[in-house]
């Protein structure tokens, strides 16, 4: 199992890297928990989740080859 996780905008303040690969994670809820353990600053970050370039609102099952994006709101101008 291999899932590609992308961090956008200011989320890289918490993660340092723009993306990571994860071997096993069942769904987006588990992914969020895992990421918070790995990057505690993500706990208070605001973002939505997209799976394979589609925004998801509910917990979504993940499978090998999926790309998950964490997208925060931007406000600069």
């Amino acid at each position: 199992m291999r899932i590609h996780v992308l961090f956008f905008g200011s989320l890289t303040d918490a993660t340092v890297v723009p993306d990571i690969y994860l071997e096993t994670v069942a769904d987006t809820a588990a992914l969020k928990e895992l990421l918070i353990q790995q990057y505690p600053l993500l706990r208070t970050a605001k973002y939505f989740i997209a799976v394979n370039q589609k925004m998801v609102q509910e917990n979504t099952t993940l499978k090998t080859g999926d790309t998950v994006a964490l997208m925060p709101p931007f406000s600069g101008g």
Binding site: G9, S10, T12, P73, F74, G77
Partner: peptide, 10 residues
């Protein structure tokens, strides 16, 4: 809508 953050824009 348009906005920027770091090196990215939306």
């Amino acid at each position: 809508y348009g906005a920027v953050s770091r090196y990215q824009g939306q």
